[in-house]
């Protein structure tokens, strides 16, 4: 664990995930700097053939990383994934049926510049919002699944994200299916103000009903999961899994440092640390996730419900 923290140190919190660059050959427009193109480790040329691991700095063939499910073959650092990539690695091929694909938020505060940012994020990711939801099977087990996308405005939760997740959970309750949510989020969507805050209650309420119906909810925390998402559906799973090294916390590191005026302990807010404190059930490497999810789903499989 100690070594792990060390190799993570160089990674900027908001560096462009290699996944995004490798997936999208087109450069994001100036506006799309929302998932900020800050990573000086990458230039347009090396996104095609070479990529540098933000953790161990090894220069690798992009292909070697993509073929390893975006995990650095040298240091096992788990690079961030797009929602589509995640679905591809997780659900049974051809099983995913997307719901609410076109559902998009509006601009409830008429916040200056927000419309443009949304437009740019849509162009950059090919998504309408920061979460993809639908029905799928994982190792043959049917689930309703929601996968957040950190490339879309840092995976922040606004009205549309809250609405999509709520609908996904409500559908699961109606169809008596388990819910699996992959979280990655910078927290609430600032530009939607209080409306985005309210999504915390809305999603938690839907999950409460799902739980009362005796149905299983599994969360998979991925890097990074913070703010209002941590303080709502991310932490409400019957079973909470996390990817190795994922940053998981409520408050941001800088905010905490400013508040307490001291430096933070080694490995603070990493999945291993959060598990040590009792808030995560298991840390599961990416390659093992479908198997582990399948196992857990089978253990909860409800053939016939009485009553």
């Amino acid at each position: 664990m100690g070594m792990f923290d060390k190799i993570r140190k160089n990674q900027a919190m908001i560096s462009v995930p290699l996944g995004a660059a490798a997936r999208k050959p087109a450069r994001p427009s100036q506006e799309a700097a929302i998932p900020p193109a800050k990573s000086k480790e990458m230039s347009p040329e090396d996104t095609n053939i070479f990529a540098k691991c933000p953790a161990c700095n090894a220069v690798l063939f992009t292909e070697d990383i993509t073929e390893n499910q975006m995990v650095c073959p040298r240091c096992q650092h788990h690079l961030r994934l797009s929602a589509r990539q995640r679905l591809g690695y997780t659900v049974d091929e051809g099983s995913f049926v997307e719901m609410d694909a076109e559902l998009a938020g509006n601009d409830p505060l008429q916040f200056p510049g927000y419309e443009n940012k949304l437009r740019a994020a849509r162009a950059y990711t090919g998504l309408t919002e920061a979460v993809v939801t639908g029905y799928a099977t994982i190792q043959g087990e049917p689930v309703m699944i929601a996968v957040m996308d950190g490339n879309f405005m840092m995976g922040s939760m606004g009205a549309a994200v809250g609405e999509k997740i709520t609908r996904c959970v409500e559908e699961a309750t109606r169809r008596r299916l388990p819910v699996v949510i992959f979280t990655v989020s910078g927290g609430a969507r600032m530009q939607e103000g209080l409306v985005s805050l309210m999504q915390m209650t809305k999603t938690s309420a839907a999950l409460g009903r799902h739980g009362e119906a005796g149905l299983l909810y599994i969360t998979v925390l991925t890097d990074p999961t913070t703010g209002g998402v941590t303080a709502s559906f991310a932490m409400l799973g019957d079973i909470i899994l996390a990817e190795p090294g994922a940053l998981v916390g409520f408050a941001g590191k800088r905010v905490i440092e400013q508040t307490v005026k001291q430096s933070l302990p080694e490995g603070f807010q990493r999945a291993e640390f959060v598990m040590d404190k009792g808030f995560v059930d298991a840390i599961v490497p990416r390659r093992e996730l479908p198997g582990r999810l399948g196992q857990l789903l089978r253990l909860h499989h409800q053939e016939v419900r009485h009553g």
Binding site: A205, G208, A231, A234, F279
Partner: peptide, 11 residues
């Protein structure tokens, strides 16, 4: 577990 405490309280 600040996040967990808030989430549970909401729910």
């Amino acid at each position: 577990g600040q996040g967990q405490a808030i989430a549970e309280n909401l729910q």
